[in-house]
């Protein structure tokens, strides 16, 4: 299973950037751009650029799936097309259903790119790391932490309730977007609306198994990146997700099963 964009999407500028031996050529769509586009992150399958849509003042995220020279050209074009389309459709569906995800601006499935709303703010992962930098194990007495975990669980519940599973839920794939009330406020590190991003591995599914695996992947990712809040997260998830939609308690029961056996259903696949 490939991870499309496994690094933090918006690393703070002070963070050491992995030095790349060369900058990949920008996609054809960006060659006419009068204003600069920046490569934000590169995954195994896709690159994410920050650029502008239509006018210089409107920032956008451009996801580009470059041609894969190791694949047969016809197969490559078909896979790229299918994946760009699937991601765009899922984003549009979520947005319509009221789940906070980036809005779709433009799609060129033949050119292998998708332009989306730019989500400002930091990844949940960065916010949590900053918050958890000091002290030991965290519990319910940390109100700011409980609040953000609740919002995370509710966001995932919202996503599942509209029949979408993400496929790669991590705290890097969730943004804390500033709300008008908290914009620019310092110390509001865990404030903001949770916006789930990177639907490159997402699919439309309402199966309890798929949803439970989604939660399991998030739980595992959480445990490895924020071990101090692991136990608290599990408790908050079970409380908050369970009320997110009608079928949620069944998913949580399924999650217990998945925890015992792991992500894969059988040892054959």
């Amino acid at each position: 299973m490939t991870t499309l964009l496994s690094t933090d999407h918006r690393p703070p500028s002070s963070a050491p950037q992995p030095s790349t031996p060369f900058t990949p050529a920008p996609p054809p769509i960006l060659t006419h751009s009068p204003s600069a586009s920046t490569l934000i992150t590169q995954g195994a399958e896709a690159r994410l650029y920050k650029t502008t849509y239509l006018l210089p003042h409107l920032p956008c995220a451009l996801k580009y799936r470059p041609p894969k020279p190791w694949r047969h050209p016809i197969l490559d074009a078909r896979l790229t097309r299918q994946r760009i389309l699937a991601e765009a459709r899922i984003l549009a569906k979520c947005r319509r259903e009221g789940v906070r995800v980036p809005a779709v601006y433009a799609v060129d499935e033949g050119g292998g790119w998708l332009a989306m709303e730019w989500v400002p703010g930091a990844a949940v992962r960065a916010g949590l790391n900053a918050h958890l930098a000091t002290g030991g194990e965290r519990d319910e007495s940390d109100a700011a932490l409980v609040s953000v975990l609740r919002r995370v669980a509710a966001a995932v519940g919202g996503l599942h309730s509209v029949g979408v599973v993400h496929g790669d839920l991590t705290t890097s794939n969730m943004m804390l977007a500033p709300t008008p009330n908290h914009q620019g406020e310092e110390g509001a590190g865990l404030e903001g609306v949770i916006v789930i991003i990177d639907f490159g591995l997402a699919s439309q599914s309402a199966s309890d198994e798929d949803r439970a695996v989604d939660l399991y992947v998030l739980e595992r990712a959480f445990a490895s990146t924020h071990p101090r809040a692991e136990a608290l997260f599990t408790r908050v998830l079970e409380a908050e997700y369970g009320g997110a939609f009608r079928g949620a308690p069944v998913v949580l029961r399924k999650l217990e099963e998945v925890r015992l056996r792991g992500r894969k259903r059988s040892m054959l696949g």
Binding site: L85, A88, R89, L91, A92, R95, R96, A103, V104, Y105, A106, V107, E109, E117
Partner: peptide, 13 residues
Amino acid sequence: EMLVLGSMALRGL
């Protein structure tokens, strides 16, 4: 507006 843009972008797709 965001929903409208999405519908236009995904026309027939």
